[in-house]
Design a protein around this nucleic acid. Structure first.
Lengths: 190, 190
DNA sequence: GTCTATAAACTGATAGAC
DNA sequence: GTCTATCAGTTTATAGAC
C-alpha cells in the first residue's frame, strides 16, 4: 500500500488531468508545480521519478474503477447496472476535452515507462470481465440480449465507448459520446 | 501542393511509424535522423519546424485514406465495399503495436501544434461521411441493415474500430482487432 | 516537506561551410 | 541537400539548506 498525503493526492489530481488532456509525455513536473504553487523539486519528494508517478497514476485510476464497479454491483437490475456504468464514463468525458486516462495512455504505449502497460491492460481486463458478468446476468434475467459470444459483446461495447470518447474529443463535442454510448447500450436491450 | 522528394517521403514514413508507436510528442528529429542515417539538422531543411512536419504527416494520412476510399468506390457491392474498408484498417494495425495515426493523435489533442487538430477532425469526418454513404447504398440494395439513424450507425462503427485498435494494442494482440471488427460489420449484414 | 541551486541530457531550431 | 557547430530552452533528477 502506498502512503497517502494531501499534497501527494493533489499532485496525482493535476497529473491525471494533464495526462487526460495532453498525454503522459507532454507535461512536466514544472507544469504540476505551477498549478499547485510549489517548486518542481518538491514533487520529487512525493514521486522520485516520473515513472513512479505514472505508475501511481494508473493504479489509482484502476482502484477508482474498482470502487465504481463495486458500487454498481449493489444495483439489483443488470440493465440498470449497465446504464450506470455508462453514466460513470460519461462523467469522465468533459466538455474541456478530457477523456479516459487509459484510452490516452494506450495511444502512447511504446513511450511509457516500464510497468504502466501492465496496469493499463489490467484496467481494460477489469472492464471486460465486469461487463461480461453483467451481460450474463442480464441475459439470464431476460433484460439484455446479445448476438454472438458474451465476452465478444463485452469487448465490443468497451471498444465502442473508448472510440466514442476519441470521436467526441476530435469533434469538440462531448454530447457525441453520450449519443454513441446510448445507442450502444440500447442495442443490448432485450 | 507541397513538393515531393525521396528524402522528404522517407522522413514522413519514419515520423508516421514513430507517431503510431509513441505519439507525436515522444519522438525527436534525432530519432528520425538516426533511422535515416542523416543528421537531425538536415531534417529541418525539409520540415523547418516540427509543427510543419506534423501537419504534413496528418495531411498525407488523410490523402492516403481518400485514395483508399476512391478505390473502394469501384467495388460494385456496398457490402463488399464495407468489408474492404475494414480490411484497410486491419492493415494499419500491425503486430508490432502500430495503430491508426489519427487515433493516436486524438489522444494527445491538447499537446498538438496548431492546425493538426483540424486535419484530424477532417480525417474522421471523411470516414463518417463515406461510411454513411455505403450504409445508405447497402440499405437500398437490401445488403445491409441498420437500427436507428444511418449517420449514427456510421459513427458507431467508426468508434468501434478505433476502440478495437486500442484494445488490441493494450492486449498486445492484433487479432483482437480483427475479431471485433468482424463482429461489428456482421451486425450490419441484412 | 519545501526550498534554492545546479547538473546532465535532450529538444527544436539556426547559421554558415561544403 | 547535407554537413558541423552551436544556441537557448526545457526536462528529469539530485544535493543540501531550512
Amino acid at each position: 500500500m502506498s502512503r497517502s498525503s494531501p499534497t501527494r493526492d493533489r499532485i496525482l489530481d493535476v497529473a491525471q488531468r494533464l495526462t487526460q488532456e495532453r498525454g503522459f509525455n507532454a507535461f512536466s513536473y514544472l507544469d504540476i508545480g505551477t498549478q499547485l504553487g510549489i517548486r518542481n523539486a518538491s514533487i520529487h519528494y512525493h514521486f522520485p521519478s516520473k515513472a513512479e508517478l505514472g505508475l501511481a497514476l494508473v493504479r489509482r485510476y484502476r482502484e477508482w474503477l474498482q470502487d465504481i464497479l463495486t458500487g454498481l454491483d449493489a444495483e439489483p437490475s443488470p440493465r440498470r447496472r449497465l446504464d450506470r456504468y455508462v453514466d460513470s464514463y460519461r462523467e469522465v468525458v468533459h466538455d474541456d476535452g478530457r477523456i479516459c486516462l487509459c484510452t490516452v495512455l494506450t495511444a502512447e504505449d511504446a513511450a511509457l515507462p516500464a510497468g504502466m502497460r501492465e496496469e493499463i491492460q489490467a484496467f481494460f481486463d477489469l472492464n471486460e470481465r465486469w461487463l461480461g458478468g453483467v451481460l450474463q446476468a442480464g441475459i439470464a434475467a431476460g433484460e439484455l440480449r446479445v448476438t454472438g459470444a458474451r465476452e465478444l459483446a463485452a469487448a465490443s461495447l468497451l471498444a465502442t465507448l473508448e472510440g466514442a470518447m476519441l470521436l467526441a474529443r476530435a469533434a469538440r463535442d462531448a454530447s457525441r459520446f453520450t449519443q454513441l454510448a446510448r445507442a450502444a447500450v440500447a442495442d443490448l436491450y432485450a
